[in-house]
Design a protein around this nucleic acid. Sequence first.
RNA 1: GCCGCGUUCGUCUAGGGGUUAGGACGCCGCCCUUUCACGGCGGUAACACGGGUUCAAAUCCCGUACGCGGUACCA
Length: 518
Amino acid sequence: MISKNVRVRFAPSPTGFLHIGGLRTSLYNYLFARHHGGTFVLRIEDTDQSRYVEGAEADIIRSLEWCGMTVDEGPGAHAEKPGAHHDGPGAHHDGPGAHHDGPFGPYRQSERKAIYAEYTQKLIDNGSAYYAFDTADEVEEMRERLIKSGNPSPKYDYITRQSMKNSLTLPEDEVKRRLEAGDPYVIRLNVPRNKTVKFEDEIRGVVSFETKGLDDQVLIKSDGMPTYHLANVVDDHLMQISHVIRGEEWLSSTPKHILLYEAFGWEPPVMAHLPLIMSPSGGKLSKRKAESEGIPVNTKDYISGHYEPEALVNFLAYLGWSPGDDSEIHSLEELCELFTLDRVSKGGAVFNHKKLLWYNEQYLRQQSDETIAARLRAMDGDLVDAMPKQNLVTAVGLLKERVSKIDELLEMGRFFFEDPQEVDPAAMKKWKEDSAELVGEYRKRVDAMPSSAFDATSLKSTLEEIVNERGIGFGKLMMPLRIAVTGQGFGPDLFESMALIGREAVLRRLASAVERLG
RNA sequence: GCCGCGUUCGUCUAGGGGUUAGGACGCCGCCCUUUCACGGCGGUAACACGGGUUCAAAUCCCGUACGCGGUACCA
């Protein structure tokens, strides 16, 4: 049974735009938190200064918001709206020590250095950690030496540390002298030699590792920053995180974390390692792979690509989880209700872009024509403004069953807004010898129609007249007409479309097609 | 290499001792539509392999293979 205080965190590092895999991890954390009436914390793991990317944090926050996930605690979680206070432009509440983002702040690890130092000292004091003065080069040298002598995965461990420069091998006074002299050092975890580390993973069951396969993980780097391993344990404890739900790539470093909890004398949170999202060609869905397979990797690409956020959320939720029934479509609220960890699958899940598009269609079609029309106007005002509002709404109704994403409406419906500039080469196969003559005849009759009669019904009966008179197939005139009016071989109902485009433009396009296509 | 984790239709998955192994995406066909789609109906297609345990194994156990992850002063 899940205890009362569920607190989970999404802890991305701001090294780039939010990856789709990170977004799913975040989603599962969010769903779990909401399902149990718990708290969803966002923590920024910016301990690697060399990989820090400006704007990454803002991208993460924006991505979560776009999906509809609300952060309970984290940077900006309780930020006031600009202008709510009379602090004047440029007034800043953020910065080191700001705790208004939640009761356990700060939520950026770079702002918690003092905390890590304090806790690391406890580890030093109780012998669970030690100072190591070896330079990066020296460690590298050691590795190479070991590799040469046939050790495929050299480690700074129980054995090798005995020949390195650290507070376990150096005389006490030299350690003291080096520390006082300000010699650079790292702090390493003192991993015991022969111990079995066991823990129960909510998704995988009992997992166990032998400590002899682990190295003396660096806890504090020489720049004074903690590594992920230390920071994540200290923060999860201090922030009272109840469940750690993260990607499977963390599974093998979990024993180090367990060792740390033990060294501190803390109860570890419940662990749950999620299956990875895989690329269709196999392997973890990396940027390179995904993009070469036409899959956007960054959440921002889905935003700018005009995907429906509900569709992405729904799709991602089902990538590695299922509610156990035959349902497919669920809102974020419903997913919160349904989500449990015991229904998360163990194996990696291949990203299926076509299924995502199917989800996108579902969510697009359930929106009213008016809503979509308004969104179109916001997307491309210039093009869309050429058309009266009501006509645009009608056009949306004609088009929306035929596209996967909202931006495709602009492409497919371009002919509603402007005369076709050229004909789709694929469609030209349907333009035959007699097409020009037939289209010309059709134009003549439409021209002769009173403008009051210019509607879908008479547009259609006019075509039927000609076809019947000549004893030819419907499509014989239908397709050339479509090509002349839209420049395409497919699209919404032609007669409705022509009625919407209007008499003047239709006559103009027919004449132009007869002339240009012969 | 070593350590860990996985493995049910092409893909996402349900099913956890007795099922005609279910659904969804995709694909194919038919119907609707004198057009493209939507929609409706139908079809294709899976328990990685080998041993056990059992009256009975996709399901439990052990191997093997394959895949993936990790093996950093990156997260």
